[in-house]
Structure formats: structure tokens, C-alpha cells
């Protein structure tokens, strides 16, 4: 095959980054699951996100009653999630599945941040790795995210 280096498409072609993949090694019933959401979920007592763009993140203790959670996010229609936080952060459903033994348990702390753009560099190189290390230190076996 002839390979010509340096050729470039004349039309815009999106570039998908190389894949990252950590295989699952346990069955669900042995996994501790954390939730991580880009929907701007946080405790009512916590600092709101800056709706104009915010790369900080919030810890959400597993024991927090879902009524004590709220959303601050400037990038989507919040009306459903204001009625029921489980629309984006299905914490009550996760507790029910843990109680049934479908999963081993819930992580002691879950994660909320405000996605939908912002400082992508910061999210990729600071916020993301920080959240990853934090969840790792909690002994989490798997993460269910809601975003996009």
C-alpha cells in the first residue's frame, strides 16, 4: 500500500480521541458504584456553580437525602431535575438497587460538576484526574455518569 504522509482533509473532520478502557473484573453484585454527574448537582448547603462556566466539582455524601440536593447549571432546561433530582442523579434508585443486592453498595461520596463546555483543558487535565483519584481512593469499582 502506498502511504503518503502529511495529507490533510479539505473538509472539517472531527477527531475522536484514542480510546481509554478499563475492563470490569467483577460481577455487579460485588461492585461498589458511584454516581458522577455533569448536570450541576450539589448539596443545597454547598456553593452554587458559576453558571457562566465552572470547572470546580462538589462532593455529594451518599447519606444526603435527595431533598437536600439541588442543581445549578446554565446549559440545559432544569425544570425536570428541579421536580425530581433523580432525573439526572438517580441516587434514590441506586440506593434501592443496593438494598436489593443488585450491586454490592453505594460509594460513600458521589460527584457533581457542571459540564457542557467550560474550560475543557482544565476538565481534561485537572478536574477529571482529581475526580478519578478521589473515586479511586474511595474504593469505587464502577461509575455511572449522566451527561451529554
Amino acid at each position: 500500500m502506498t502511504i503518503v504522509k502529511g495529507l490533510q482533509s479539505e473538509i472539517f473532520v472531527p477527531i475522536t480521541p484514542p480510546s481509554v478502557f478499563t475492563p470490569v473484573t467483577k460481577p455487579l453484585k460485588d461492585m461498589v458504584i458511584a454516581l458522577a454527574t455533569a448536570a450541576g448537582v450539589h448539596c443545597k448547603s454547598d456553593k452554587r456553580f458559576n453558571l457562566a462556566g465552572d470547572f470546580t466539582w462538589r462532593k455529594i455524601p451518599d447519606k444526603t437525602p435527595s431533598d437536600d440536593l439541588m442543581v445549578s447549571h446554565g446549559g440545559y432546561d432544569n425544570s425536570d431535575v428541579n421536580k425530581d433530582i433523580n432525573c439526572m442523579f438517580a441516587i434514590d434508585r441506586l440506593h434501592e438497587l443496593a438494598k436489593k443486592g443488585f450491586i454490592k453498595g453505594c460509594a460513600p461520596t458521589h460527584v457533581g460538576f457542571m459540564g457542557g463546555g467550560g474550560d475543557v483543558e482544565k476538565f481534561t487535565n485537572e478536574t477529571g484526574p482529581e475526580i478519578g483519584e478521589f473515586l479511586k481512593s474511595e474504593g469505587v469499582d464502577g461509575v455511572v455518569m449522566s451527561a451529554g
Partner: peptide, 8 residues
């Protein structure tokens, strides 16, 4: 990033 930290 979470996946890179070793969590599926």
C-alpha cells in the same frame, strides 16, 4: 479521566 484512573 476516571477511566484512566483505573475505574470502569
Amino acid at each position: 479521566a476516571i477511566e484512566k484512573a483505573g475505574i470502569p
